[in-house]
């Protein structure tokens, strides 16, 4: 079973990026690369080669869903799983993201002390289901 090491985090909010970075690196001991937009993510992803995408849903210009669809079109990125983070608490939207293939949807505000274990358990579940 592949181990989760590298996460590409995309969020347009600077402060949330700071909190998430600390939660994943300091608390979760993961390797994190961050971008403030979907366009940046498309540039960085092929070089960084993350194990998982952590994407904010509501971003200007290119939203989380669209960013993921474009990321999946990059050769070698087709099977990289995605977890979405959203501050929009609409149940239907969450369901739709799972339908699209997201392995988890984490609602904001998230608990930085729990973020890593939430991500890891979704990762493990995904690895087990093949």
């Amino acid at each position: 079973m592949a181990e989760l090491q590298k996460i590409l985090h995309v969020d347009d909010d600077d402060d949330i990026r700071i909190i998430a970075k600390m939660a994943l690196e300091v608390v979760g001991n993961l390797n994190v690369e961050q971008c403030s937009s979907g366009m940046d993510a498309l540039e960085i992803a092929p070089q960084y080669k993350p194990d998982l995408f952590l994407l904010d849903v509501m971003m200007p210009v290119m939203g989380g869903e669209e960013t993921w669809q474009k990321l999946r079109n990059i050769p070698g990125m087709e099977n990289v799983p995605a977890i979405f983070m959203t501050a929009k608490a609409q149940d239907a939207a969450t369901g739709a993201l799972i339908e699209l293939g997201a392995i988890a949807v984490i609602t904001k505000p998230f608990d930085p002390m729990e973020l890593c274990s939430q991500i890891r358990s979704a990762w493990d579940r995904h690895q087990n289901s093949g």
Binding site: V27, A87, Q90, P109
Partner: peptide, 27 residues
């Protein structure tokens, strides 16, 4: 409502996150 919710939750995410990290000693 959804937009307002988003606008309220986003700063709350940072505030709560920061406070939790402070409490936990991670910072």
């Amino acid at each position: 409502v959804s937009v307002v919710s988003h606008e309220l939750r986003t700063p709350l995410t940072s505030i709560k996150g920061a406070l939790r990290l402070l409490q936990s000693g991670a910072a």
